[in-house]
Design a protein around this nucleic acid. Structure first.
Lengths: 190, 190
DNA sequence: TGCCGGTCATTGACAGTGTCAAGTCCGGGG
DNA sequence: CCCCGGACTTGACACTGTCAATGACCGGCA
């Protein structure tokens, strides 16, 4: 009632997805929770897909802000490590956003260019940083491979912890945070 | 008409997901395509979730078979590389299966233990192989980190190519297969 | 032969969904 | 004052997943 209906709809959507999964996201239930009629949300979002796209944009913006903060101080190597850790932490702390962000079939870039742009902003941080740490490369293909390698490691770690088998079983007495640190150390200090 | 309805339902489901995404998977449309009444599939699957679970099991079995084939010949290092490449190839060739396999909220392991078991079979290959290549480790935590690192790299590469920004933009004149090889080389031959 | 249980599939119904099309209300500018 | 545009509501439609009851078919047994 207090805040903008647009915000309330988005918040209710996140909450609903958290409880019932993306499949449980219902336009009408969202409206119900926001205390309005089932058609009110359509005044702010043309579509159910538009709500999801707005969440994707929110998510990428959140991630980009965190990554940009992590790259502000320290040596290049320190910053690279911290940004990687930030990426994984974000996935684990905001699973709802993170999962939506990597379901591209939900957000057609033609219809929702803002979502894609926010994604580019986050990815740019990682790219810039890897460039800096690995130094200039003769072969541009090698540079690309370098970026992809770092990014894959971090992204894979995040998704395996979130939705892979690492979500449940993890050696006895090993916290997820500890495991993440171990893997990052192994990868970066070789 | 010819084959078992159970098989036809599964095939139609894959096809439908391929065309319209998981959200477009409809019990009734599947039945329509199989040429039966809207309730016929219920005789073979208790649920819509049961269909998805069956596809997940199929997918993991397919992947496990391919990985097991790839680990049969060659030196340990060769086999590790080939299994990694197989993992990525599978994701790119069978995106419908691969995506379902990593949406654990769709297949409750209590209800569908077979799906989880098939997953374990595939993961075991990678685990066994990393163990072999990296040799015995004093610290068991280090061994786990070793496995997770390799796995994350490969899984991240697969998902970024499939659903991340690497799906669209990739340096000019660089095929996906070439890029995968470059990244794997960089990672394995350090 | 005649019946019987079980498997497979059918038709019918119900609540819930996304979304189109109209209506209602209301505050602020001509 | 009027009226206009935005915010919201009510009503309807086709479609969905799933429960229930019904029917066809079949091999085996009396």
């Amino acid at each position: 009632m207090t805040a903008d209906l647009k915000e309330r709809v988005l918040d209710a959507s996140v909450q609903l997805i958290r409880e019932a999964g993306l499949g449980g996201l219902s336009m009408r239930e969202v409206a119900r929770r926001a205390g309005v009629s089932h058609q009110a949300p359509y005044h702010h979002f043309t579509d159910k897909a538009a709500i999801v796209a707005a969440l994707v944009e929110r998510g990428f913006t959140l991630l980009a802000e965190r990554m940009e903060a992590a790259e502000r101080t320290g040596t290049a190597a320190q910053r690279l490590r911290r940004v990687g850790r930030t990426y994984v932490d974000f996935a684990l702390e905001q699973p709802v956003y993170f999962r939506l962000m990597f379901r591209p079939e939900l957000t057609d870039p033609e219809r929702f260019p803002a979502a894609e742009a926010a994604g580019g902003r986050a990815f740019a941080v990682l790219e810039r940083l890897v460039d800096e740490v690995t130094g200039p490369q003769a072969d541009p293909g090698r540079k690309d491979a370098m970026v992809t390698m770092h990014w894959s490691l971090v992204h894979g770690l995040a998704t395996l912890l979130l939705d892979g088998p690492l979500a449940s079983e993890l050696g006895p007495g090993v916290t997820r945070g500890r495991h993440v640190d171990d893997v990052l150390s192994l990868f970066l200090e070789r």
